[in-house]
Write a protein that binds this DNA or RNA. Structure first.
Lengths: 351, 351
DNA sequence: CTGAAAGCGCTTACAG
DNA sequence: CTGAAAGCGCTTACAG
């Protein structure tokens, strides 16, 4: 374990104080060009890198942001969604010379939650919170604490929170519009996401609203939990009870994948007998046969923009807490594939 | 931005020095039970959480580990593989009350690489490096520096590195064995991974070795790059030239997915006309039609075990650098699905 | 046994 | 203008 090089080592090599060396490296004007060059050279030669602990303690800034995945959604960690968000965060964090910390599981040792400690200990200057349940008290507390936090998603009950999301209601309405107007589907079923998350509620509401708009004769809803298994279970019920649906709107692609498998094995043809659509487009929907028509959620961009907003908060350039710019809404695309009845790779229907 | 609570605040509330408060919280025996309780209560009431910067500076330990993805493989970041590794790392890190830092892109500002800074600045106590190219000088330098590093994969040219991996050669041999002995395939093609990564070489060598063992009349190899597009390109060539292969061994599932699509559109039936196998099983292989027979790489377990080993190094309980326990090899499973000719969900063939 | 200094590495505000 | 102290928050080694 090699001893690390400190500013003192650099200063000693040049024959100045560590204070002078510090100023030299930061380009302070009171240091002569000559010593500045000497210090920089010495730092290079010794492979000096500032201690993050020393700097953080002095500057009261960790130069790090955390991605927080609340306990309430730990079970979905491991999903490509988080990778997309993380990629976006990394892009923004790199631009700010900041580190990205991933904080997931419960901190059982203290009975609290890990991410509260990340914030309170100032390991991170701020946090991105995603996939929080509506009634997650810890997230509420975190937002209320005034620490820099940006939420990904819609949180109508957290009025003062800064957030980045999409319009799940409108996007789902577009899917239903497509099934009805392009493919003539009229007997639709919605398999919901988890209803303790706002996306679950919003996608269901979008479905119901569009069904109502089009005056559909029958609208059915089965509650799912976003897992492939729950999509499969819903379709097993459909296959068993034969209610005659001609279109299924799954609240995400994972459930659509599970559902497609069950329908195929039961001999139900998609899209000939039943149109299927999903939501997310994080990777699976492109790969099935037929491909799944879905809404592309710009997860990477959400991560990037959320992180940019987070740095604004950290730097004190926060948005007016009572202004109307606390929420950033990103546009989505409907990606048309074979499962609804379009040609595979039919393209994109920008809503 | 609320002012954070320091040890001094806690100490003041109880009427002791911060040194005493520190000892009280760590359960030092020289502090009486009475003051210890009082300090703990005060800490709870004030919501005290130790400053990570203060603690890190004093203890010379960040209580954090980094996941490093070298530049040479930045293009594959965003893949489910990393999420699995990250999940495994989180499990181990949580058990050690440590944070997980994700370090990806180049640190262009200094001309160096971001992850070198993460280590040199002591932001992390150690690092997991995955997907490094064989000739990645930065990784070589990192290993040579003596800082705690664990590599995921096989690095025969880095003899002294601690690493966790699987036997890619043997696993690929098993796939070929299966195609030959169970499905009677004899005219095989291998689409390689990137050949500047050891996995690419090993999987190719496993293919060639098994082909030789079975005395196959013809063995063909097309170089791919692990992308869906390169798998598709390879199959376009096959469809065009009609060389009469009856089995394709793709070096990963992504390429198999791209290949399957091209074959299907060309009217080639899988598995009737051609058997297809992949490698990885990170999520895609389960979802296609037919499902892809593949080798399940235990990425989460690799991440977890690598991180456990890393903590051993950090704690100075490193393995003997000249011992033969520097490399941990994990077992894999061959997952049988429809693409080779087995029934979908035929089960697992433990090699 | 206990009080309080020293020092981890850094940067800036202060004294000269 | 420049030298060097002070202090961020923490913990342990030291002095009494």
């Amino acid at each position: 374990m090699p001893k690390s090089v400190t500013l003192k080592d650099v200063a000693a090599k040049v024959g100045v104080t560590s204070a002078a060396a510090s100023m030299a490296l930061s380009g302070h004007e009171r240091i002569s060009e000559k010593t500045r060059a000497a210090v920089k050279r010495a730092a290079d030669e010794l492979g000096y890198v500032p201690s993050s602990a020393g700097r953080a303690l002095r500057s009261q800034r960790a130069d790090a942001v955390a991605l927080i995945v609340p306990n309430s959604s730990t079970h979905v960690f491991g999903h490509l969604y988080f990778m997309h968000v993380l990629t976006g965060m990394s892009t923004a964090a790199n631009a700010h010379d900041a580190q990205v910390i991933v904080s997931t599981n419960a901190d059982t040792s203290t009975g609290g939650v890990a991410y509260e400690r990340v914030m309170r200990s100032r390991t991170a200057d701020g946090a991105i919170v995603t996939s929080a349940a509506i009634d997650d008290d810890h997230v509420q507390a975190l937002v209320a604490s005034g620490l820099p936090v940006v939420l990904i998603g819609n949180y109508p009950h957290l009025a003062r929170a800064v957030s980045v999301g999409i319009d799940d209601v409108a996007a789902t309405e577009h899917l239903v519009d497509h099934l009805v107007t392009v493919h003539g589907r009229r007997r639709l079923l919605h398999v919901t996401g988890t209803l303790d998350h706002q996306t679950g509620l919003d996608r269901r509401d979008g479905f119901l609203r569009a069904a109502n708009t089009h005056g559909l004769p029958e609208v059915a809803v089965i509650e799912g939990d976003l897992s492939e298994a729950s999509g499969a279970a819903a379709m097993e019920q459909v296959v068993r009870e034969q209610p005659g649906y001609d279109g299924i709107v799954f609240a995400n692609d994972d459930m659509a994948v599970g559902g497609l498998r069950v329908l195929r094995r039961a001999g139900v043809r998609v899209p000939e007998d039943i149109s299927v659509v999903g939501f997310d487009d994080f990777g699976l929907a492109r790969v099935t046969t037929p491909g799944i028509t879905t809404v592309r959620v710009p997860a990477e961009e959400m991560g990037r923009i959320a992180t940019e907003r987070l740095f604004s908060l950290v730097d004190g350039r926060g948005s007016d807490p009572d202004g109307d710019d606390r929420h950033t809404e990103l546009p989505v695309e409907v990606v048309l594939r074979g499962s609804c009845g379009c040609d595979d790779d039919a393209g994109i229907a920008a809503p």
